[in-house]
Design a protein around this nucleic acid. Structure first.
Lengths: 202, 202, 202, 202
DNA sequence: TTCTAATCGAGACGGTACGTCTTGTCTTGTT
DNA sequence: AACAAGACAAGACGTACCGTCTCGATTAGAA
């Protein structure tokens, strides 16, 4: 698994790194975000504060890295969307699952923490888009392209726009607690998106 | 409207209240949000900290009230959308204006602060929806209803959903700094929304 | 006791001040000096660290003030040396008592802490001489002057020098743990001093 | 000079040892003692911290060893006091020289550091007495014994006590910055000591 | 000469305390 | 009686060192 650098060298570093990220994740998932202090992370990880500050410049960065690490190791396969040939039902499946995910309190807290940091730090936002959002979006766009080829989607549609129309309403409703994220709501978003970008256009 | 206490009494209250909200607003507009401390607000307002804590339970609440106060005094008229009879051009006008607003750094900081507080405080979120979002949404829905009557919009469309499909992508792109908020982008959102909820449905 | 300023004003201030000094004193008396941290003092005093830093610039200053406070309130009377008319026996009494004091571990630790701070801080040393050493020295010199008048001491003797010759050997032996501080040793110092500065000089 | 280990082997050891002691000495002579950290010593010596901890248990011990090393290599001769046959003038010469030494800021800092460590560490104090103080005291006592034989000093005088009466006042005045260490002061101490322990006793 | 074992410099590590900052409460005059 | 001013207990901040541990890179002598 490890290469030239040697496994022994990185062991201690890696162990403390994992301990920190794991501690950060569990704290964020458990409690109000303003209780997630660097000291609390260090204490739970069994690590000195300096070991955190040596690697990351701020709590934001640690928390971000902790969330990021969750999706690392995931290969292209694992984020690929289902492709049964029926775009509508595939999208409804995914959207319902996404809506359900938001209902998990731990995931909710994790994601709110992430969004809080991202919203107030342009650099972190860029890293977020690059490392987290883009891979997921690319997987989704792959499915949409397949639909375009199958004639189920306007071949000229701007796929980034399609994704936004599909997901942003769900995201906003969750962020602002604007209403329940029901399966029916998920379906309605898919329906609206397909009406907007479907094939039958005059 | 004034009660037994007398006008002189409440006038002092009101003056300090305005000073606090105005100080909060200017601080939020000026600098990074984590520099906007209760102490900084009190100092700029020339007010004791207790005078702030006597009225609001936390910094979040003060900042929220400060933003809220911006839109107070606005009557139903002033938030009404234009209605030229042409839904598409009316919406494009509004969406382009909205996109432009986000470009103002002060407004940007103000709105990010607001969203940060809202995202992490369910009560504040409820107050936000009630006092800020709903009135604006109602004004927008009034315009949409007018369009439904004019046959420019599906009479069965869920107007809340329409608004989300229209606005959420813009909001999300701004929040995550996902791309430039150009007039063309504003137009594209209107077009997509009208395709999704326009009158011509099979 | 209290004057114009009003007793209510100083109550809280005074209470926390006393708590800090008392905590510092007990910690210094109890344990190795490098365990006497500002945090430990604050914790034992039930006080925030800032309350300490608001009044004193460093641990040294707090510890010094704590020791200083011990001898405050002592009026001129209480530090006066006995005067039976017999200088030799009066001095031996005092020197034996002094030697005995050094044997108390609490007093030993307290005095070592004080000397450590004084030796490394010229300002503190000046304050020490002014507020602690001088009043004591004046009391001792008063006794010596009485002896000069009684013809038991060279009327031309430099009393500061007399005091140094009398006390410095005891101090140095204690500081460097150079030997036991026995009554016989105390007596020998008095004898030597009286031989050096007694009346019978050719 | 070299032992079983072999000269080449110990040469590296010796070089780093000297670098550490020299770095410690120069740091102590230059700046406030609380800036003299093990890390600073290691950095200036160009040595890893472990190389220091491998040899000494604490900063105190290093600093002590650094000061100690200053007087090593000095044979019995070099610390011998002058003996012109005139005790008074010999002692005044030495006392004046000693007083002058204290005026050198580097020496002052060095000696304050040494005294700080000694005062708070009984083991170090013992080593100090054994390795530093005793050889010097023996040299002084040799001169005093010579004076006893010459009838210039009470043959029954306790020479340790004589040394204390002679030196402790100077030491104390220096440690507490109790006044200027003038030649006149040095002379006065010699005079007082000789009056106390001189030959003419009734 | 090549190998082996010790020692070194460098510096990361888990900790502790530093001195500063802010929180939300409490106290003290002022007006 | 409400206010500004700011002290207070609490506790997190980010930094500096502590004394320990780990890592290669020199280095000897030993093979």
């Amino acid at each position: 698994m490890s290469n030239a650098k040697g496994p022994d060298h990185s062991r201690r570093k890696e162990r403390s790194r994992q301990a920190i990220l794991s501690a950060a994740r569990s704290l964020v998932a458990e409690q109000a975000y303003d209780k997630v202090t660097v000291e609390a992370i260090a204490a739970r990880a069994g690590v000195g504060k300096q070991t955190i500050y040596r690697r990351w410049p701020s709590r934001s960065a640690v928390v971000f890295a902790a969330v990021l690490a969750l999706s690392e190791g995931a290969d292209g396969q694992s984020v690929a969307l289902p492709d049964t040939g029926d775009l509508e039902s595939d999208l409804k499946l995914v959207m319902r699952a996404t809506a359900e995910e938001f209902a998990d309190p731990s995931f909710d807290r994790l994601l709110r923490a992430l969004n809080t940091e991202i919203a107030n730090d342009a650099e972190l936002a860029a890293e977020y888009r690059e490392k987290l959002a883009r891979p997921l979006d690319e997987a989704k766009k792959a499915r949409l392209r397949s639909a375009q080829e199958a004639g189920q989607l306007d071949p000229d549609a701007d796929l980034d726009l399609v994704l936004e129309v599909l997901y942003a309403p769900l995201f906003q409703r969750w962020l602002h607690r604007g209403g329940p994220l029901t399966p029916a709501y998920a379906d309605a978003l898919v329906d609206a998106t397909l009406r907007a970008f479907g094939p039958a256009r005059p």
